[in-house]
Nucleic acid binder design. Structure first.
Lengths: 186, 186
DNA sequence: CATAAGTTTCTGTTTCTACCGAAACGTCTG
DNA sequence: CAGACGTTTCGGTAGAAACAGAAACTTATG
């Protein structure tokens, strides 16, 4: 069994384990992250059964986790010639991976938060009874998160080579904002 | 009791509750986030007892949570004239808040991950037995996260007005990388 | 249609984690 | 030193997830 071989390697195992722990600390369940890690390192599409066996999880659990990963669009189902079973592969472009995870978490958690803050801010604007500071701070929070959201949507649309270039620029991008700024780190 | 008044307001309560839920989804415990929300909206430094009473938490729990928030450096202890008790205030500059939370999470979770990936990548580089793809992908992951980390360290050092300006630029920063890129969104 | 594959749902168990409340302890201050 | 304040620790509990394993069900395929 090819997967046995893969996970038998101590470094591969260490990676999978650590990735699983990472996930839990960011609110992603362990099975999901581990399966992702496994697929990321696999040199070929894996059927669910093999994942089940390799990680020692219940088949039902693997099914759910795969669905979740496809919800993030970082794992996709592929067809393998001569095999009726579904197989799965992970996105290996790390930029793409990061952007997709971010997109999904924004959709699930940030957008609803913005919506709620919007309601609260709007209502508070007309609410004379509310403390001035409360009105101001909830308003500022709404504005802040919205701005971040908009920024993300724009950055997400940039071509990857541009992202890479911007990243490498680091703090130096500040130069373009104001000639005087951004010199501290250059 | 001033805090009673504050939390009695339905919108304030909604904010605190939602902030608490948000926290849990990102791996921060509910008490910690709720206390942070409460302090963020408060117009004055609050003593631990008042927080305890307002949120209905155990005193020990509040103490631990406050310590955690101070670990993130988004809440600090202040002295109030004529009161022996410690009082606490939250950072209200949202940029500062975000950067500090990011810094601490990086320190706790990302840095150790980079360190581990570094070890694995290094060991795998000399390990002929490991599958080529595994060596390559763990190496790339290490490089990728390291790059992100370095980028963050640089951005963190920029003055806030610069950050705000960059954020407002959005996708337009791409112009500075290559004249041809970044036009899609402009 | 018989079988393989896959998903979904359910029940039950286990495991975490949050949280409470009490106690012990340290520190400061009138 | 007595009392106020604060932290830390500890035992216990409750709730939430994660997960296993079985079963029901759908769908595709030879």
């Amino acid at each position: 069994m090819a997967m046995k071989t893969l996970l038998e390697h101590p470094d591969v195992k260490a990676f999978v384990i650590h990735w699983g722990e990472m996930g839990t600390q960011w609110g992603v369940n362990r099975s999901v992250s581990q399966i992702h890690a496994l697929l990321y390192l696999s040199d070929r599409p894996l059927p669910a059964d093999e994942i089940t066996e390799a990680l020692g999880l219940a088949r039902s659990n693997v099914s759910t986790a795969l669905k979740e990963l496809q919800g993030y669009a970082i794992v996709r189902r592929v067809h393998v010639e001569g095999d009726r079973r579904d197989h799965f592969v992970a996105e290996t472009d790390l930029w793409e991976m990061l952007l997709r995870i971010a997109a999904e978490r924004k959709r699930r958690e940030i957008d609803p938060t913005i919506a709620l803050l919007g309601e609260l801010a709007e209502r508070l604007r007309h609410d004379e009874t509310a403390p001035k500071l409360v009105r101001e701070r909830i308003g500022r929070m709404h504005e802040f998160i919205s701005t971040l959201g908009n920024w993300y949507e724009q950055v997400r649309g940039l071509p990857k080579p541009t992202l890479v270039a911007l990243m490498k620029l680091g703090g130096k991008v500040a130069r373009f904002v104001s000639p005087l700024k951004g010199k501290a780190k250059s």
